[in-house]
Simulated assay, not measured.
Amino acid sequence: MGGFKAALINEVEKLYKKKKALVAVIISLAFIVIGQFGVIGVRSSFGLRGVGSMEFPILILSLLVKTILPLFTALITIDSFSAEFSQNTMKIALTRPVTRLKFFAAKLTAILIFILANLLFSMIFSIIGGLLLDSNSFTLQGFFRILICYLVTLLPMMVFAMIIVFLINIIKSGVGVFFVSILLFIVFKGLEIIFSRYSGIFFTSMMSWYNLWIISTFPFWKIVRQFMMMCSYSIILFTISYYLFDKKEF
């Protein structure tokens, strides 16, 4: 456990020092500010209420999971693995007293911490933005609904990160992995629309599963089914990716 903890601290520190993490924070903040101006513009131009303080963070989340969150998850994941492959620094990291499994798990955990931090950062500032728009509609129940939505989004993003890790262990080029991952995202989005009846099996549809947690009639079994499917994807992808990683010669 000590080896895993040391490896995790090292990986988190490396991610923290990368400029991509800072850019992700800045762009997330820009999305919130643009969203505020958009709501204010609709309200002033058309006299519409727009969204309240409790709806605004959900609106921001729906934009994030379809745009910059998958993008920066792909970039950070690729940089965490592929950059070390190409710079031949993976061999140095593996000389430490830590097993490949712990090292691999530490990298994935650091990526999940980055995603969670980005989600929480966006949640806090979107709530503040919502309060600036309409502080009267704020409720404690609404806050917990927002918190749940942002937290449960971590699981589908974990599946997406695992897909990227799998591609990294097959394709050597980081640029190649990036374009393949973007292509896969677009293709699965298209398949989700074409085969709408079976859209639940595509990982892109799972990124919106937070909507299931806030509808009036709580769909318990549908949530459990989606949860089990995402766990299955994660276990399968983790096993295959680690097998490929373990067989690599550094």
Rank of each mutant, 00 (worst) to 15 (best):
S126K: 01
K102S: 08
I148L: 14
F143L: 11
A105E: 06
T153M: 01
L108M: 14
I124V: 15
N118P: 01
F125R: 00
I113W: 08
L147G: 11
L155K: 00
L154Q: 07
F138C: 02
F121R: 04
L108C: 12
I111Y: 06
F143R: 00
L147F: 15
L112H: 11
L112T: 09
A106H: 09
I128W: 02
G129N: 05
S137Q: 07
L131H: 05
T153L: 02
G129P: 08
V152T: 15
R145W: 03
I146G: 02
A117D: 10
K102V: 01
I148E: 15
L112P: 03
A117Y: 10
L112S: 13
F125C: 05
L140D: 02
Q141Y: 10
T153C: 08
L133T: 03
A106P: 10
I128V: 14
A117F: 15
L116R: 04
S135P: 07
F143M: 05
R145S: 13
G142F: 06
L112A: 12
R145H: 10
G142I: 07
K107G: 05
K107E: 07
I124D: 08
L132M: 03
K102H: 05
I124N: 06
T153G: 06
G142Y: 05
A117G: 13
K102F: 03
L140T: 12
L147R: 08
T109G: 12
I146A: 08
F104A: 05
M123P: 13
F103S: 04
Y150R: 02
A105W: 02
L154S: 09
M123T: 12
G130K: 01
S137G: 05
L155Q: 07
A106I: 12
S126P: 09
F144L: 04
L112W: 12
G130I: 03
A105G: 01
M123I: 11
Y150W: 08
N118L: 12
G130P: 02
L140W: 04
L155Y: 08
Q141D: 15
A117N: 09
G142H: 07
F103W: 09
N118V: 10
N118D: 13
R145L: 06
Q141W: 07
I115E: 04
L132K: 00
F138N: 02
L140P: 00
K102P: 00
I128H: 01
T139Q: 06
A106Y: 09
A117R: 03
L132R: 00
L151Q: 09
I128D: 03
I148S: 15
F125L: 12
L151N: 10
M123L: 14
Q141S: 14
R145G: 12
A106N: 09
S135C: 06
N118K: 00
L108S: 13
T109W: 09
I148W: 11
L151K: 04
I146R: 01
F143V: 06
N136D: 15
D134H: 03
L133V: 03
S135I: 14
L147S: 14
L116Y: 14
A117H: 09
N136H: 11
N118W: 12
I111P: 02
L147C: 12
A105P: 02
Q141G: 15
D134Q: 01
L133I: 12
A105R: 00
L154N: 07
K102A: 07
A117L: 12
I113K: 00
